[in-house]
Design a protein around this nucleic acid. Structure first.
Lengths: 187, 187
DNA sequence: GTCTATATAAAGATAGAC
DNA sequence: GTCTATCTTTATATAGAC
């Protein structure tokens, strides 16, 4: 399948909608409408249908997250700056909704698709954070880097999903409050 | 509508499935199958259909959370014990998926239903945590209790959704690690 | 309270014209 | 590349028998 401009528009629209509303809640007609074509025309670009489309754009998105997170982290040396860079990068992206992806979207897919995406999600989101925590924290926290990476990610997703509902601070300000707590509490 | 045993079985099954998989992903046939009846028979117990059923069981669940959280907190006096009690209570319940509820389920409902549930969710989950943080933390953190309550909730949901994937610790052990960080980091 | 049967709508998917 | 038309399946929902 060629990667034409038209196909790219389809993929970007699909990624945006799937990310915002989840796999089940987005129909092929929704995507086609936003692209400005009829839903049947999607099958020219994505012959294997909805599930294949979701897997493709989710893998793309996760790969971008892996790159973005790793680069943001590599640009700094102390833990606080690294976590801030990771947080700012995450908050500048459309909300990924890792938890919903794992709990609601994955079970709707074939076992094979779900398995591939789970591995990609772990490599893209959890592992970069685990690594930075392992090298930046006192050694006695090494057993907890999995938990702490998950907690960091959960907190960022929380910020993403409640902008003005629960606080009048900006997202980076909220992230800083939590990172300060994180770093101080684990020293 | 009478609250018979049969109706109660319907509500409990619906709550369990909606909580686990989300509004869109659960069909009335799924619910009826688990109850052991035909889906058309659900309309005898819930004449107003799927959305009304979701709203009813979600309100029930949120009311239970409000009671459970408030009681757990009231049984202790220092912040660490209060947060531990809240965490243990939350982790003993089926995962509520607050974030998915807000981001994915609410937009699929009528404006009126969504509004009611948003208010109920805030009163049940955020406010009890805000209160305990406001009275247990140094005064200069008062502006951040909204963020911190959201972060605490997000972390607990994170624990709920990644049991053995990312750590071999038990859920309460994971909660303790995070609470220790929380309390120490904000002192 | 639960059933069968059916209406209605929406979704994913395919065929073939342009 | 996109369209119209159509097929098939699945979902919510209603009517009426038992």
């Amino acid at each position: 399948m060629e990667n034409t401009e038209a196909r790219e528009r389809v993929l970007q629209t699909a990624e945006r909608l799937f990310t915002a509303k989840g796999y089940a809640a987005v129909t092929l007609r929704d995507i086609a409408n936003e692209v400005g074509i009829k839903h049947a025309s999607l099958y020219y670009h994505v012959p294997d249908g909805k599930e294949a489309l979701f897997v493709e754009v989710t893998e793309r998105s996760l790969a971008r997250h892996q790159d973005g997170l790793s680069s943001a982290i590599k640009a700094h040396v102390d833990l606080r700056s690294q976590l801030q860079a990771a947080a700012y990068w995450l908050l500048a992206q459309p909300a990924l909704n890792f938890t919903r992806m794992m709990q609601t979207d994955m079970p709707a897919l074939s076992d094979e698709s779900a398995h591939r995406l789970r591995i990609a999600a772990r490599a893209a989101l959890i592992e970069p954070l685990q690594n930075v925590l392992r090298s930046g924290l006192p050694a006695h926290h090494a057993v907890n880097v999995g938990i702490l990476a998950g907690a960091f990610l959960s907190m960022m997703e929380g910020i993403h999903s409640l902008p003005d509902h629960y606080s009048d601070r900006s997202k980076p300000e909220m992230a800083n409050v939590l990172i300060e707590m994180f770093v101080t509490g684990l020293r």
